[in-house]
Each structure stands twice: as structure tokens, then as C-alpha cells.
């Protein structure tokens, strides 16, 4: 059972008449890791945030699990978001909560306010969070506060939080841009493994072209709010990179 995501004619204008996304058409089927690359300011982040409507699209359709996310009302949107995990560049953990509480944040879509306030989460959720902490290698950190962790550890918590949602789709907005090269590889490995283990599509915004080549099954290159390249990493040649980023001195 694979949820597919179809984006049709997606347009986003922060200021009227100045579109950041100029009609994006994309399809994501089944599992696999897709990297979105492109220069800063080409709308990568906007694209990924439109998928779960952290940014409101101006026009277009975002069909996920048979529903057009762009048209959902508040309650329906919340239900759709529960199935979309998201990982952020700056981790966006709730700093003053413990690692365990941050993981359980992933279950808030299923938890009433009173239960959440009293931290009365179902036993299954607690069990799952301990299991996920084990998976991401932070088993002994459950009671530590999030702001006491290192960058790499925080991003692991971020991924575990997203996995707590039992997502049918995983979004990651430059998950490694604040990390050192070694930790970046570890984080990408974790994202790729977990995406495969859950059998869900993973969509990752990336700055690092080499890293995307290494981990992505498919690369989407964006330029000026449009899709300039869409294909397997092997087909992404110098000419295309030059087209996407402009200039060529940096390529050698």
C-alpha cells in the first residue's frame, strides 16, 4: 500500500504577480528518496511547505491519498498532516521539552488536549517512541531536554518525531544543511533506510549535489520556480547542473 502524491499546476505567489512557484507538475509513486536541488531562492522550500500547507498554495492541486490537500478545510487538513512527516533544517524541536515529549509530539494529531496536557499518551505510543529512539540510536536520551543535544542528535530526534506519525509520506527541508559532512551522511542514511523500511516516498530539499547523487533515487532540479530537471542521478550531467545553478567555475 503506497500513497502517491500528485502535484498539478502548483503556483505560489507571496506577493501578487510575483510567483515563486510557476506551475509545478510532479508525481511521486511508491517508495524511494527524491532529492530536490536548485539554487537558493528557487522555491524548493516553498514547494515542500505547500505539500503540507505550512505555506498556502495560490493555485494548483496537491493530491495525496486521494484528497486534494490544497482544498481541505482546517480539520481535514489536520487529519491529512497527521500522515505527512516533516523534518526541518534547524530541527525545530521544542527545546524545553524532553526527547520523549518531542517524539510524542508526533502523536498530537491523535491525542486530546487534556490527555496531552497530562502527558497521558497511549501505552502503544510510548512503546513506539522507545523503539524509535533505539532505531535512531538515542535510547538513553529519553529524559534529556532537547536543547542539551548536539545537532546530529537533534536531527535524529526530528526524524524519530516524524516517524512517530506513522507517515505515508516524509518531507525533509534541507535536513543536513546545519550539520557537518559526516553527520550529514548519517542523517541521509537514516532517512533513506527509514523511508525504505516504511515503504513510503521521501522528498528531501538539498543543497549538496554530491550528497543528493549518493542517496537519491530521483533528482528534481528547480530553476526560477520551475522544474528544470527530473530524472535519475546518473542523468544529471554538468551541462544540466550549469543550467540549474548558472556559471560553471564551481563545477571543477
Amino acid at each position: 500500500m503506497t500513497a502517491s502524491l500528485t502535484i498539478r499546476g502548483l503556483v505560489k505567489e507571496y506577493k501578487p504577480g510575483q510567483p515563486v512557484l510557476k506551475g509545478i507538475d510532479l508525481e511521486f509513486d511508491g517508495a524511494g528518496l527524491t532529492a530536490i536541488i536548485g539554487a537558493s531562492g528557487t522555491g524548493k522550500s516553498t514547494l515542500i511547505r505547500c505539500i503540507n500547507r505550512l505555506v498556502e498554495p495560490t493555485a494548483g492541486e496537491i493530491i495525496f491519498a486521494g484528497e486534494d490537500i490544497a482544498k481541505l478545510r482546517r480539520g481535514e487538513l489536520r487529519n491529512a498532516r497527521r500522515r505527512i512527516g516533516m523534518v526541518f533544517q534547524e530541527y525545530n524541536l521544542v527545546e524545553r521539552l524532553s526527547v520523549m515529549e518531542n517524539l510524542l509530539t508526533g502523536r498530537l494529531g491523535y491525542t486530546g488536549a487534556w490527555q496531552a496536557w497530562l502527558r497521558r499518551f497511549p501505552a502503544a505510543d510510548i512503546e513506539r517512541s522507545f523503539a524509535l529512539l533505539e532505531t535512531v540510536g538515542l535510547a538513553s536520551f529519553a529524559d534529556q531536554r532537547a536543547d542539551s543535544l548536539s545537532g546530529g542528535q537533534r536531527q535524529r530526534v526530528g526524524i524519530a518525531r516524524a516517524l512517530m506519525q506513522e507517515p505515508r509520506l516524509m518531507l525533509a527541508d534541507e535536513p543536513t544543511s546545519s550539520l557537518d559532512p559526516k553527520t550529514s551522511v548519517e542523517i541521509m542514511t537514516l532517512l533513506k533506510e527509514q523511508g525504505a523500511a516504511q515503504g513510503i516516498p521521501v522528498i528531501v530539499n538539498m543543497h549538496d549535489v554530491e550528497l543528493s547523487r549518493r542517496f537519491a533515487d530521483r533528482i528534481i532540479g528547480m530553476k526560477d520556480g520551475m522544474v528544470a530537471f527530473d530524472g535519475p542521478p546518473a542523468e544529471l550531467d554538468h551541462a544540466m547542473l550549469k543550467h540549474i545553478y548558472g556559471g560553471e567555475g564551481w563545477l571543477h
Partner: peptide
Amino acid sequence: QVEAVRATGASFANVILF
């Protein structure tokens, strides 16, 4: 931090709480 909690599909009350 608020955005991350919203992204999980949490209700408004839960966003405030967490």
C-alpha cells in the same frame, strides 16, 4: 517550534500546549 508541532496535524489546543 510551533511550525513543527503544527506540521504533525496537532489541534490548535495541542499546538499551544506543546
